[in-house]
Amino acid sequence: MTPSLASALMPLMRGLDAETAHGLALRGLALGLAGRDGAADAPRLATRVLGLEFRNPIGLAAGFDKDAVAVLPLLRLGFGFVEAGTVTPRPQAGNPRPRLFRLTEDAAVINRMGFNNAGLDAYLARLQGLARPLPGVLGANVGVNKEGADPERDYPALCRAVAPHADYVTINISSPNTPGLRDLQGEERLASILDAVAPRALGKPVLVKLAPDLAEDALAPIIEVCVANGVAGLIISNTTIARPDTLVSPNRTEAGGLSGAPLFARSTEMLARAHRLAGGRLALIGAGGVSSGAQAYAKIRAGAGLVQLYSGFAYGGPALIGRIKRELSDLLARDGFAHVADAVGADA
């Protein structure tokens, strides 16, 4: 099967409950049923970020493959990188179902999954079993359990466990679906966690994933804490608990984090602010509402060295990846950029 054919079959999945469809899609991917993208990426899309070489800047955000069951098939679809997780120290079931909702009319998704995953041991076993070298960069996204968590204990242990098996590690302190997690974004608490993690000693780049709902004056202190503690980059942003007035789907009132098209403007504005504040001291990954090459390009021009998809991929399917890369390459060529890195922060 080709990515285009896999995408053509996706409307059939939309007749199913969203979480059931997601589970079936992951199983199909793990079996290689989505095929692979055999086209070579345009040379201008290759980039170096976080000290790592990416064949293109388009990645899959954490949350899609929580248990790292389909890393290799996902990379074969054409992503430049895949971020697996969020993984927690112990397995947990997450929140009661239903907990994943399509907002089709808004090209959006609401989730309140609650870090459902099979736990660190199962996750590590899958990472260790991957055939190397991988055809792209692998990120590991880590979080804490809902019950019995000790962030200063758990985040360092998680980072040390996954670092030998991933190219970078992301500390998730911004999911809205684990009570108290977003409180860890406070300047003092984040400094305490990062001091315990000791990113400079980990041997792999460490990133922090932030929420788009931070107060405007909170971003600068967080950036300074991250820089001071050796963090390599930020992912901007996670889902939002805000509900724009433009939402029309019947599911718009569901609790949880909103992702997809309604998040694009908010997350891109935050990304641009982070780019100005960081002044080149942190790599930035732009996430939130990307479903076209033009939107990926906007993230890059706002300051993102890399871009992640989630809801756009869920709606558009595997064929979306190649389309975004082609559109992005054409836009770079149109504006005279020989390499994608040349366009980073062009609108700053």
Rank of each mutant, 00 (worst) to 15 (best):
G257P: 14
V49Q: 10
L202T: 05
L52T: 00
K66I: 00
R189V: 11
G303S: 11
F115E: 05
L194C: 06
I324F: 07
A39E: 12
V248L: 13
L309I: 01
L77A: 07
A157V: 00
V227L: 04
G230P: 12
G256Q: 02
M113T: 11
R243F: 14
T104F: 14
T2F: 11
D167M: 02
L284M: 01
P89D: 11
E269D: 15
G28V: 01
D245P: 15
L331K: 09
V290N: 10
L158I: 05
G32K: 02
A196V: 02
D217R: 13
V69S: 14
P262Y: 12
P133N: 12
G305C: 05
N238H: 06
F54V: 14
I173E: 05
G305P: 03
D106G: 07
A62F: 13
L16P: 03
F264R: 05
Q295T: 07
L202S: 05
R27S: 15
G28M: 05
L16V: 06
G289C: 12
T178M: 07
G280V: 11
L24P: 03
D41L: 06
A255I: 10
E327G: 09
A84P: 00
G317H: 04
L309A: 01
A34D: 07
I171R: 00
V144L: 12
F313S: 07
S237E: 06
S4H: 08
A333L: 11
L100T: 07
L75H: 11
Q308H: 12
R132T: 04
L9S: 13
G28L: 04
